[in-house]
């Protein structure tokens, strides 16, 4: 079945079997391997992408359901003017260890800051509660999203999502 998806701002089409999961469409049809498949059971959030701006688990959605929608993966976070504030902050705060959960964490963080530019630590912990970091590096992930919020507030013109 032919689907049309706006992938990271670019119109893309693919011919996919209906049973193909969105995660596989993204990785295998579009070649964007930043989206990781972790547990494959809707538990870990490593495969999180943004569907029309909201986080969804791409292992629990068929590619055909994304037809006509906008999908943002970690590759789509950076803008023409460089890395997204969340990406910069994950680097600065050492918000990752092995990096496997990082794309999902960053997308959830970016979506949270769109909705809530000044989150408390509790807001951040709530937002990432569907994402598991098996290195258990949560402290720095929360710190990174806080740092990104402050960076966005300080330079709102440079903030892209």
């Amino acid at each position: 079945m032919e689907i049309s998806v706006t992938m990271n701002g670019t119109a893309r089409t693919a011919d996919v079997e209906p049973r193909m999961l969105l995660a596989h469409v993204i990785r295998e049809e579009f070649g964007l391997t930043g989206t990781h498949v972790g547990c494959d059971t809707t538990s870990c959030g490593a495969c999180t992408v943004l569907l029309d701006g909201s986080p969804v688990k791409s292992c629990t959605m068929f590619g055909v359901q994304a037809d006509g929608h906008e999908v943002t993966t970690v590759e789509g976070l950076a803008g023409a003017d460089g890395l997204h504030p969340v990406q910069v902050a994950f680097q600065e705060e050492h918000g990752l260890q092995c990096g496997y959960c990082t794309p999902g964490m960053m997308l959830v963080g970016a979506a949270l800051l769109e909705r809530n530019p000044d989150p408390t630590d509790d807001d951040i912990r709530w937002a990432i509660s569907g994402n598991i970091c098996r290195c258990t590096g949560y402290m720095n992930i929360v710190k990174a999203i806080q740092t990104a919020a402050k960076a966005k507030a300080a330079a709102p013109a440079a903030a892209t999502a």
Binding site: T42, G45, T48, L51, S54, P55, V56, K57, T60, M61, V108, W126, A127, S129, G130, N131
Partner: peptide, 9 residues
């Protein structure tokens, strides 16, 4: 219910 990401769908 579930987690915040699952609740979006």
């Amino acid at each position: 219910i579930a987690d915040p990401i699952v609740r979006n769908l």
